[in-house]
Design a protein around this nucleic acid. Structure first.
Lengths: 164, 164
DNA sequence: ATGTTATTGCAACTGAGTTGCAACAACAGA
DNA sequence: TCTGTTGTTGCAACTCAGTTGCAATAACAT
């Protein structure tokens, strides 16, 4: 599974903040820093827990409000990762290169996959429909190589509540 | 905007039900029929309202439980449509051909877009990663031709709660 | 240093989705 | 067609992610 090193827009937060009349509070910087350095996709609760280690008084509303702001600015993306683990939403700092999220339905692992086909779709939409693409989200479900080898199947008719 | 006629797997529900020991209740048939004939993407509440017209006593738990079953069977997909209208989830009967959901951030319209590039991605994942794809979900945000013409922009730094 | 105002934290709230359980009904076998 | 098994339904109570109103606080421009 080829994992390309992540490339991110740097130092854009200050510029964007000034542009939109936003203030760079300690809390806002912290939340953005957590997302930028995250190695996995985090949900709101996990972001809160990480933030509270450095900023014990921080409240969950501050997390939600800032996730909202960062989403609107386009520096953070909200994902559902195919609802594999319930109805959670996950967040990641937006990277320069668009990528797909590939989830194994058998073992639950989520990979990132980079392909030029994403650009192809964007170009087609532009040419065929006159649609100007701002961002693309691709989520793919299936069975990873390891699970195919070991014969591990997706527990298809899954029952009951998924882990929250 | 080229809208390809929808092609769906027909008559598969009976087979699947037998296969998995499920019963084809009136309610289950109704919910599936609503999704199959839907011209737009529906959320749970809208499905409930439609169902109650034909089956006044039907409860929302029945909707949720059946959406769960139909999802697990792979005949219904759950989408968030980029959270354009809040954190709602939308449902659609799975079609034979995979397609992308293209949403205009300015006017909120959602289109379906068919492209062979989806197959390209699936093939690449198979060849490069040994990953076997079951389904692909593509959601694209941007500006549609009409909004570009009329100069309508996405209300980017959007504030407050979105319509629920 | 000072005023303006975006932002924070608290507490109370909203609403989508879930759970337990008794009554019901689909369906297979007689 | 009748009958037993058991998957499914509807109800009521619940859970919990995310939101709202508001007073106190703190960025940041001047």
């Amino acid at each position: 599974m080829p994992l390309v090193k992540q490339i991110r827009r740097r130092g854009g937060l200050e510029r964007l903040a000034k542009q939109h009349g936003l203030r760079l509070t300690r809390q806002r910087r912290l939340i953005f820093a957590i997302l930028e350095s995250a190695k996995t996709h985090l949900n709101a609760k996990q972001i809160l827990e990480q933030a509270q280690r450095l900023e014990p008084g921080i409240d969950q509303v501050t997390i939600y409000r800032n996730l909202g702001v960062l989403k609107r600015l386009g520096v953070v993306d909200e994902l559902d990762l195919l609802h594999l683990r319930g109805d959670q939403h996950y967040y990641e700092a937006r990277q320069v290169r668009a990528h797909s999220h590939v989830a194994c339905l058998a073992c639950g692992k989520v990979f990132e996959f980079y392909t030029s086909a994403i650009k192809t779709i964007d170009r087609e939409l532009e040419k065929e429909c006159g649609f100007s693409v701002s961002f693309t989200r691709i989520e793919i479900g299936g069975q990873c190589a390891a699970c195919r080898k070991s014969g591990r199947e997706a527990p298809l008719p899954r029952k009951g509540k998924q882990a929250r």
